[in-house]
């Protein structure tokens, strides 16, 4: 349903961010995009909804070619593509409700959005979404009064308010502490499963990505160098994606462990992982 064909992006500075990326994502499939900084992860998801104009290649969503749409029709496609950001990108001085309703901007005429007179159905849906992400009591709080985790929940609610056919998620947990990061990642993946919503999730955190997402795509210097199940991630693959380094860990989490952790609460997941981390740290100190 989402198909990228030979997507390329060269910035005016001459940097080649994407170098012929082809990728197909089926309905309801969640993909984690991993790779070193500067590999082109952000460029890739921004080329999908053309926040960045790709230099070459084509993007299809449900058979519609997004690349090459006029401005008006591009906006109609964009409103069905939800986006979640690393630094949350909420409008800081607006309330939580206004931020969630801003997900409806592509659907309502200007005067309605200016006067904040959104259709009652939209407002009702927004209340429902805030309930779903656990922020029902924060409706009237200003976005800048919330904590990082709460802000990202608002960001998720805003993306869902768009009634999206696709989620683009850019480093959703990079600004969050480990526990909140897990909760947010779990929430995003749960919602994708509930709605059979396909998603591309950029992540620096390979462990976290492998824990929640089944299909991993590795990007290096603008090229896809790995595309496979999370269970296939091993030292060789990590070296191929990130370059040589002592990864010191046998295959991240084996699939059985993954199931186990997904069933447990956030604290359980944390605890299960900690001994492993400590062992690595000790090994590092000894060596």
């Amino acid at each position: 349903m989402l198909r990228l064909e030979h997507l390329a992006k060269r910035y005016p500075t001459g940097d080649l961010a994407l170098d012929g990326v082809s990728l197909t994502i089926d309905a309801g499939q969640v993909v984690a995009l991993i790779g070193p900084s500067g590999a082109g992860k952000s460029s890739l998801i921004r080329c999908v909804n053309r926040l960045i104009e790709p230099t070459a290649g084509r993007v299809f969503l449900h058979g519609v070619e997004i690349t090459g749409l006029g401005r008006r029709r591009l906006r109609r496609v964009r409103r069905r593509i939800g986006m979640i950001f690393q630094e949350f990108a909420l409008v800081e001085r607006l309330t939580v409700m206004e931020n969630v309703l801003s997900g409806r901007l592509g659907y309502v005429p200007f005067w309605r959005s200016l006067l904040r007179r959104f259709p009652p159905a939209d407002v009702e849906a927004a209340f429902g979404l805030l309930e779903r992400v656990g922020l029902a009591e924060f409706v009237d709080k200003r976005a800048d009064a919330l904590s990082g985790g709460q802000r990202q929940r608002v960001g998720i609610a805003r993306a869902l308010a768009q009634n999206p056919q696709l989620l683009l998620v850019d480093e959703p947990t990079a600004s969050l502490d480990p526990k909140t990061a897990r909760q947010i990642m779990r929430l995003i993946c749960e919602i994708c499963a509930e709605r059979r919503l396909p998603a591309i999730i950029n992540s620096h955190d390979v462990r976290l990505a492998a824990m929640f997402v089944h299909r991993i795509v590795g990007l290096r210097a603008g090229q896809v160098v790995f595309d496979g199940p999370a269970s296939a991630l091993n030292d060789d693959v990590l070296t191929r994606i990130y370059g040589a380094e002592d990864w010191g860990t046998p295959g991240l989490d084996t699939p059985e462990e993954e199931e186990e952790e997904e069933d447990e609460g956030a604290d359980g997941g944390d605890a299960a992982l900690r001994p492993d981390l400590d062992r690595q740290r000790l090994a590092g100190l000894a060596g």
């Binding site: 964009r78 990108a89 909420l90 801003s102 409806r104 901007l105 659907y107």
Partner: peptide, 16 residues
């Protein structure tokens, strides 16, 4: 960028 990504029009981008 976030408001643009929702499919908002230029006037709505200024407003929000």
């Amino acid at each position: 960028e976030a408001i643009t990504a929702t499919g908002a029009s230029p006037a709505q981008i200024i407003d929000y």
